[in-house]
Design a protein around this nucleic acid. Structure first.
Length: 425
RNA sequence: GGAGAGAUGGCAGAGUGGUCGAUUGCAGCGGUCUUGAAAACCGCCGUACUGAGAGGUACCGGGGGUUCGAAUCCCUCUCUCUCCGCCA
């Protein structure tokens, strides 16, 4: 969430920038926040003075009792009664005001950076770059990955349905080995880029869900164990970023660069059609996530490095890709700047999103209370960033489809040492 | 699942009704000394809100209560640890 300071000291600026996210209630909500905040401050001032009076009286009573002036002590006791009554009323009011402000703040999305394009949906995203040739197939018709998976016995979707349900595929043989190869490849690449590998729990408590903002907004999108009130993570972002919840770092520790491979679980309620065919949208999948905690003045540079990292992965996998700068309307609630990576899937003849690299600036850190001490001793909110590097299923889909030949599926050079085979046939 | 113990500042660990926002040690920061470092010595060293500032207020796991006054007493919730049981 935004900080009170951001809102109260730059009211017009905040309203202007929120327009790009098509958040129509910006002016209304922000003016409410400002009014409530003014009330909050005057209420606290009044309350503090009442409490100070009681504290002072209490201290004097202690002294009077010790010196045996009982009558004076009793009269001082009587004097506290009115203050106590007043402060009770004021403290209830203060609590209500603080709750109301927080409730409003949670409804206000992050401010998009000025470089974010205008637009309302996916069609308005700006293609920054497109790299790699779209493959063509001579002499045979390209098969979609779900048919290739069957043909070479790599992935059994029906078996997954039997064991768990739709969206839980079973990988077999070279299909399973390809998964393992990709996980190791992505982790090694992150390691070489200076990321510290983390293996976090894949089940988190509610506090962590709130910390990164999955709760309360996306409650229905996570698998939830009601018995123990735990959630299956939708991404490693949740446990990894929550490492830094309620933490004050030193400026020397920044930027923090973490990477993690986890299984990710998503209920994907409301998905349908060609979007969910094959590997396109799963309830459980493997993903390597990169997370950074950084100083505000360096987060833009970090974001660029993360983009370069993801781009390098796609280049090494020899996949045609494009980079989209997301428009205000297509960005998530919490992002200030976001780029998507898509690979072209030749048989499906469409672009598939394989990574999303976002800078949340201080929006997520404010909720997490992730701060750092500056060189001159001030405590400031960090910036947080994350990106997929990469999610496996659509990479596998594209690899299978694009690299199919009349006599098997070719494995890209970079992956062969990890796979232990150079061809699926 | 059963029984017990506990939750205090970055960590360790005192504190059982009145200058306790909290003793002390370690870590950290600054300084003296030193060619430099270490050691020793001296000083500083929680967070948030509020206030121009001086200062004020809140916070000793969360919530509630008793009291003029609560880290300290009472209730309640949560979590952690130990032992037993079960188990990868």
């Amino acid at each position: 969430m935004l900080t009170l300071k951001q809102i109260t000291s730059n009211r017009d600026e905040v309203v202007r920038r929120l327009a790009k996210k098509h958040f129509t209630r910006a002016a209304e909500l922000i003016d409410q926040v400002i009014a409530l905040d003014a009330d909050r401050r005057s209420t606290q001032k009044e309350l503090d003075s009442k409490l100070a009076a009681v504290n002072q009286l209490s201290k004097s009573i202690g002294v009077l009792m010790q010196t045996g002036k009982k009558a004076e002590a009793e009269s001082a006791k009587a004097e506290t009664a009115q203050y106590k009554e007043d402060s009770k009323v004021l403290s209830v009011k203060l609590d209500e005001l603080e709750l109301a402000i927080r409730d409003l703040l949670l409804q206000i999305p992050n401010l998009p950076q000025d470089g974010v394009p205008e637009g309302t949906g996916a069609e308005d995203n700006v293609v920054e770059k497109q790299v790699g040739a779209i493959p063509t197939f001579e002499g045979f018709e390209a098969l979609p990955h779900w048919e290739l998976a069957k043909k070479y016995d790599l992935i059994d979707f029906e078996l997954g349905v039997k064991i768990s349900g739709a969206g839980f595929p079973v990988y077999k043989g070279k299909g399973a080995r390809l998964q393992r190869a990709l996980i190791n490849f992505f982790l090694d690449e992150a390691l070489n880029a200076g990321y510290l590998e983390i293996m976090p729990p894949t089940v988190v408590n509610a506090a962590s869900g709130y910390g990164t903002g999955q709760l309360p907004d996306k409650d229905g999108q996570m698998y939830h164990d009601a018995q123990d009130d735990l959630y299956l993570i939708p991404t490693a972002e949740v446990p990894v970023t929550n490492i830094y919840r309620d933490v004050i770092l030193t400026d020397k520790e920044l930027p923090i660069k973490n990477c993690a491979y986890t299984q990710c679980f998503r209920r994907e309620a409301g998905s349908y059609g060609k979007d969910v065919r094959g590997l396109n949208r799963l309830h459980e999948f493997s993903k390597i996530e990169i997370v950074r905690i950084d100083k505000p003045e360096h987060s833009a540079a970090s974001h660029k490095e993360m983009l370069a990292h993801v781009e390098n992965l796609l280049a090494k996998l020899e996949l045609p890709y494009r980079i989209l700068r997301l428009c205000g309307g297509d960005m998530s609630f919490t992002a200030a700047l976001c780029f998507d990576f898509e690979t072209y899937s030749a048989a499906q003849q469409r672009w598939l999103e394989v990574s999303s690299v976002s800078n949340f600036e201080s929006y997520q850190a404010n909720r997490l209370k992730c701060r750092y001490k500056t060189a001159d001793g001030k405590t400031e909110l960090c910036h947080t960033l994350n990106g997929s590097a990469l999610a496996l299923p659509r990479i596998v889909a594209t690899l299978l489809e694009n690299n199919q030949t009349a006599d098997g599926i070719r494995i890209p050079k970079a992956l062969i040492p990890y796979c232990g085979f150079d061809k699926i046939d």
